[in-house]
Design a binder for these strands. Sequence first.
DNA 1: CTTGACCCTCACGTCGCGTGAGGCCGGAGG
DNA 2: CCTCCGGCCTCACGCGACGTGAGGGTCAAG
Lengths: 270, 270
Amino acid sequence: MGNMPDAADTDGLTVGQVSKRLGVTVRALHHWDEVGLARPSLRTAAGYRLYTAGDLERLHRVVVYRELGLGLDRIRDVLEDPAADVPGALRAQRAQVDERIDRLQRLGAGLDRMIDAQEHGLLLTTEQQAAVFGPQWNPDWPARARQLYGGTTQWTQYAERSASRGPEEWRAVAEAVACLERALGDAMDAGVEPGSPEANRLVERHREVFASYFPLTRRMQVCLGRMYEADPGFAAHYDGIRAGLAAWFRRIVDADARAHGIDPDTASWR
Amino acid sequence: MGNMPDAADTDGLTVGQVSKRLGVTVRALHHWDEVGLARPSLRTAAGYRLYTAGDLERLHRVVVYRELGLGLDRIRDVLEDPAADVPGALRAQRAQVDERIDRLQRLGAGLDRMIDAQEHGLLLTTEQQAAVFGPQWNPDWPARARQLYGGTTQWTQYAERSASRGPEEWRAVAEAVACLERALGDAMDAGVEPGSPEANRLVERHREVFASYFPLTRRMQVCLGRMYEADPGFAAHYDGIRAGLAAWFRRIVDADARAHGIDPDTASWR
DNA sequence: CTTGACCCTCACGTCGCGTGAGGCCGGAGG
DNA sequence: CCTCCGGCCTCACGCGACGTGAGGGTCAAG
């Protein structure tokens, strides 16, 4: 029962004592003093702030309303304006809170979509995938693609696009791809020569269509052409359209690249 | 098919055109340029920013991630660091969003409590009220009090306190009030004179107990004393404790006020 | 040549403090 | 007496993502 460090019967508490009592920082008290929201009625000769019981009363009200998320200006109104519409201000604040919750929930839903896209590469159900991509589609492909390419910049960009695509959009992409592949097959059949304007137009068109997945530079396209030929799965796909299409495609891509000053034999993905 | 105002085939779009296409403000584009997040690759001779197709690509990605709530620094990482853990960043963001939703929901609950307190004055069910305040309690009183005093500073302060009180706390308040009233009755019976130290101590104690509702100045206490005597409801309550207690209470309050330099006949509530 | 729409670069304001920097005050110990 | 340490003071900048002018060039059309 010795003299307590912060006796309640003195006529004022210092900032540190108040800060402990109310659970706010000293800086906050300084700030509220600066802006005139809650000032101590006393100062010691040395300039120390001294908060009286009445000041504590007011500070406590400030803390209460701050915990409700009101801005300092609004709190000032509530504390000082006897005509302040406190219930109105509270309801307005409530409405704002609901709004912000809504926005955050939509934001969370968007994040979930994007995370899903990053993890699965495709946001369609197996049935939707079958309906959109046709019978030759293998639902394991996205997972396999992620295993191979997950973590690359291109996978990230692909996922960004996937997140904003529904069945409709995917159908349009699949249609464009199918249309291009038909055109490639027809051109090869028609004897279009690598390096010819027609071949180069097709190469250009391939880059544009492929941009549905991610932006493709000409160098990357060269690598892609070589992979289409070398990878058994891709080769089988293209040669299934026309025998030799994979090799022919590589040749028209290489020719187009050369025409743009790129050596296809040394071109790298990045 | 005339020349469009923002032809897509020119080699750059100005800030205004980009702003319309992407739905962001011109200032945001300036800002992203300033901080180096997304700069135009071209400028006209006059200094106009010109965004190329590639720039638009990058801008679009910025917009996407900004809509997911990522900070500009994090977006920069995602766009530029090929080793950036994009799914990780997204999940961290998701966790933050959930946290913020939680905080907002708690905040909303607090607001609801406070609004309720402002509107009803008491957050207890009718049964709880009966259990806490005893059989002579009338559940219409809070509503009536709000009709009379709603909108005053004191009602607001009373509501603030009510919002943070449960049945326990109300029981303590009711107990303190009952105890005080017993003491008042006993003192009157014992012939305590208005103006005596004992009477003044009781007046002081009344102010302290009453502070459970809202802070009471001595002037306000004087008005209260007069109302206790004049209002039939209050008078009946106090005279029900002891015949003449309302009038005696007014007299001890008046005397205490006079002893503190207040003229009870001209004292006003505010 | 003028007009009006568009563009530029500063540069301060927002909101509620956090975080030092530099220095004074006050009580305890040597 | 001096010193030390913890607490207090007053500046004053920083944060995050721009909003909002001020003051002044630029461009296409009438």
